[in-house]
Design a protein around this nucleic acid. Structure first.
Length: 274
DNA sequence: GCAAAATGTCAAG
DNA sequence: TTGACCTTTTGCA
């Protein structure tokens, strides 16, 4: 479930289990065979996440992974299971293993190449000192819809389709509002809420955005069906006002919102709806 | 047994 | 702006 919190969680767990050890790196599928040979048996320094990118430093050789839409890590203790299917990369140390499948990117980079990727990324709400002003500088100059800007990794990094829909709902911002019409106050509130939500996502391993509704409940647990306001709730009544949740494709990604709670600029006319 | 969907990015035109 | 691509899981026949 790769939005930013997932990657930060992976970076933390992989560092805990593998850093400081010589890691057996392999590519049973073969697609990463050359890269694996470059780092196999070297000592892992640490794994860090920037937005949705992972960087595992083996000295000057950096394994860069981007999960894309389908990528997935599976990890376990003891000895690894027999390799099956399209297993792109496997790490093994004494007592732990982890397998990577389906990633968009899995490659060995030089430090300079890794830096070049970082240079393209906007501030990440989950990093230590993110520069939220840099994101607003871009947003406030753009005529593009805010819903698209939030998913643009050059503007800010780590936000995916779930967080963007939910954060806009929570702040009652119309998704098609041009970035330049978002006020500084709206941005400040939105950003600080993003930091809170994504930190909670990192802590719990899931995205729950409806929590304030459930304050005061004895159990903090929120059922999956209740975890979001609008994401994947097309046609269901808005939890606040009852209006059916709307859905449109924006840049090929499904965008969900409540037309009443998030009143404002309308999407362009429908020519073709999936 | 097969089609569709899924939390994303990049490059061609 | 559109399609290609990475793989697994789910749902329907």
């Amino acid at each position: 479930m790769p939005e930013g919190h997932t990657l930060h969680g992976l970076a933390r767990d992989q560092t805990d289990r593998f850093a400081g050890k010589r890691v057996q790196v392999s590519s049973p599928q073969g697609r990463f065979a050359e890269g694996a040979a470059l780092v196999d048996g070297r000592v892992l320094d640490s794994v860090t996440a920037h937005g949705k990118h992972l960087f595992a430093a083996f000295g000057e050789r950096i394994v860069h992974v981007h999960l894309g839409l389908f990528g997935k890590y599976v990890a376990g203790q003891g000895s690894p299971p027999e390799a099956r299917g399209a297993l792109r990369m496997r790490w093994v140390v004494d007592g732990f293993w982890t397998d990577l499948r389906g990633a968009t990117a899995c490659e060995v980079l030089t430090p300079a190449e890794a830096e070049a990727i970082l240079a393209r990324l906007g501030p990440d709400p989950l990093r230590r000192r993110p520069n939220a002003d840099a994101a607003y500088a871009r947003i406030s100059r753009s005529r593009a819809p805010i819903a698209g800007l939030l998913m643009d990794q050059k503007v800010l990094s780590g936000v995916g389709n779930v967080y963007r829909a939910e954060i806009l709902f929570r702040h009652q911002i119309a998704p098609y509002l041009p970035g330049r019409e978002l006020t500084q106050d709206q941005w400040a509130a939105l950003w600080s809420d993003l930091v809170t939500l994504m930190r909670a996502g990192l802590r719990t391993g899931r995205i729950v955005t409806t929590l304030p509704l459930h304050r005061g409940r004895r159990s903090g647990y929120v059922r999956a069906a209740d975890a979001h306001y609008v994401y994947r709730r097309t046609g269901l009544p808005c939890r606040i006002c009852g209006t059916p949740v709307a859905m449109r494709l924006l840049s090929l990604r499904k965008l969900y919102w409540c037309p009443t709670c998030q009143a404002g600029p309308l999407p362009p006319p429908v020519s073709h709806q999936v």
